[in-house]
Amino acid sequence: MSLADRLRAALDRTTGHAPIQGDDYDKANDHYVPAAVLVAITDRPHPGLLLTLRQPHLRRHAGQIAFPGGRVDPEDQDVIATALREAREEIGLDPDRVDIVGMSDTYRVGTGFVVTPVIGVIPPDLALAPQEDEVAAVFETPLSFLLEPGNHSLQSVMWEGRERRFHEIMWEDRRIWGATANMIVNLAQRLQAAGL
């Protein structure tokens, strides 16, 4: 069975895991703007997951590691179209090279978005063209490392007078944290509960 088929079957199964639903702080007053990210997994014997390093000068999430993605535009047919459009704009990923296998749990961020992670399988070693104004780097992290619960560290920090809790995943010199790490943890729990 192909990687795409195994992922599709795992994501189609109903699981009993309780997903992390969003940040503990809420600045949106329950009025969230739909958004989507592309969780692109490379089809190789040891699959990887594509992540981006955002430029340090950006107004939001500067210098952080993220999935390619953004808000749903009115012309987008659905969240899949949003994730594919954003991945093309941010890293030059051709939508025709992405085999969509399903979606993971939605995640609310305190900046007012409800994000749908769209899971897709891509061929390995594609030539990508990061949009330099927004993306400082694109890199691949081993999927097995990201999905291993022992690599998920729960952290807390005081922010605006409240304790904020979030997951952190350290891979080499890369710090994956916050919404991106929480979405990875949700996916890991979902795939583990489905027996993948």
Rank of each mutant, 00 (worst) to 15 (best):
P95Q: 14
S2K: 08
P130V: 06
D99I: 05
I91K: 07
L147W: 00
A28R: 09
A28Y: 02
L187E: 01
V33C: 02
D78T: 04
H167K: 08
Q131P: 04
T141S: 11
A181R: 02
R162H: 15
I184M: 04
A28C: 05
D12V: 06
R85P: 05
W159R: 15
W159I: 14
P95G: 11
D73T: 09
Q77R: 10
E75N: 13
V118A: 07
R108E: 10
T52M: 13
L187A: 11
Q192C: 09
A181P: 02
V157H: 02
T82Q: 07
L126W: 00
S144F: 04
P149M: 12
D5G: 14
W171N: 05
M103C: 15
V114N: 03
L93K: 06
A127S: 14
D125M: 06
P47M: 10
A28H: 08
D30L: 10
M183V: 10
R54Y: 13
M183W: 04
H167T: 09
I122A: 09
D125A: 14
W159N: 14
V39W: 01
R6E: 03
F67Y: 12
A28W: 03
W171G: 04
E163I: 12
Q77V: 07
L50K: 04
V121R: 01
L196H: 04
A188W: 00
